[in-house]
Write a protein that binds this DNA or RNA. Structure first.
Lengths: 205, 205
DNA sequence: CATTAAGCGGAGCGAGCACTCCGCTACTCT
DNA sequence: AGAGTAGCGGAGTGCTCGCTCCGCTTAATG
């Protein structure tokens, strides 16, 4: 899967630890944000701090590695959603999956701007994600389900917008609030009128 | 304006410095986020660090003071927008002003969740802002310009959503990107169909 | 103008963090 | 199985940042 035998092959335990570190980092960054201490990540991964820094010389490198895996998921979600025969539903499912998957990830939210959007290191990932999203969008537009003045970037931005309410409201309270706002946004993406909204508005600002 | 003579009257220079500190903090938090060093704020305010901490015993207290002034602005914007005779335009103007005013404020964005939404200290401010937004919303709904299944909280959440793209994209690049997404969101808030979108999509993810 | 205390600034302190050093462990290869 | 090295953990290091201490300055008052 991920192995490259001849050049720089990691020892088996080292490779295992590397994956554990990434998984732990993803979890910790998601719930605590990017300021989370490397010590906590190492502890949660069950390794020493030195091991973490041997594999990722800098905290930044670790963050990059986590972001990379998360950005790959975007393209995967898009491709998965493309299976649906109805173009409108496919695009909707993609955006819903995106929001569901990332709306509780504080770290990804914090990294979105400076890193995901601008760092040239992620250019290929960006392109792959945008292409996949673009295919969904074009199909929906050709079916007349989505206004034609939207671009692939708009799809990801709008999905990000729908996440806003989740990032900002207390965890555990109204865990599906994003559905409400994604609904409004999807309505705004239609060429014509708006659709029904589920009742039950939140009580916070 | 702000003075309370008998109890705890600050000396004139101290009061002046207090305002300077808040202004500097607002600026620094806005561009650097809440992690900005207190030393930079003190320096930009032209005072020593001790002065800053004499007035605000904790960095948290300083943040609270800044947030408070920012939250008051929300209600002010809502009341100002209410002057417009057309209910739909009034609500639109409020949301546009809100996004314009806060979309480049990193600090407010970071504070939005934990502090603005949940801290009981801000309950009165929240209520005042929500009431003002609610008046605009109800008027627009009674005029048939906005779907009736939206609440005052939705208005602020949706305005926040429109800010997302700005917080996430590089400053200086497409400074009016928020207009694009606010347009989509406003269309989604209408009872019926969608309206025209200005051409020119961004090129980032 | 003299008195007085509120106010001031910057050096210093302690906590917490990213990152390193080094003696020990255990996987790999033959 | 034994040699040899990649890998390991946790104590240590230096730096940053929030916050304080204390001798000097200056606004307020009669």
């Amino acid at each position: 899967m991920r192995s490259q035998s001849p050049p720089s092959a990691l020892r088996a335990d080292a490779a295992r630890n590397r994956e554990r570190i990434i998984a732990a980092a993803a979890a910790v960054f998601a719930e605590r944000g990017l300021d989370a201490a490397t010590a906590e990540i190492a502890h949660r991964a069950g390794v020493g701090e030195a091991t973490l820094f041997r594999r990722f010389p800098t905290k930044d490198d670790l963050i990059d590695a986590v972001i990379e895996t998360r950005m790959e998921e975007v393209a995967v979600l898009a491709d998965a959603a493309a299976d649906h025969p109805d173009p409108a539903v496919a695009l909707e499912r993609f955006m819903a999956d995106l929001v569901k998957q990332f709306s509780r990830d504080k770290g990804f939210f914090e990294a979105a701007g400076e890193r995901c959007m601008n760092d040239p290191r992620f250019q290929p990932l960006r392109e792959r994600a945008l292409e996949a999203a673009g295919r969904l969008l074009r199909r929906a537009q050709e079916a007349g389900a989505v206004r034609t003045d939207l671009s692939p970037s708009d799809v990801t931005f709008l999905a990000g917008s729908a996440m806003y309410a989740m990032e900002v409201s207390k965890p555990g309270l109204r865990e599906d609030l994003w559905k409400r706002y994604l609904r409004v946004i999807l309505d705004g993406m239609k060429p014509e009128g708006a659709s029904k909204l589920r009742p039950g508005a939140p009580k916070v600002l």
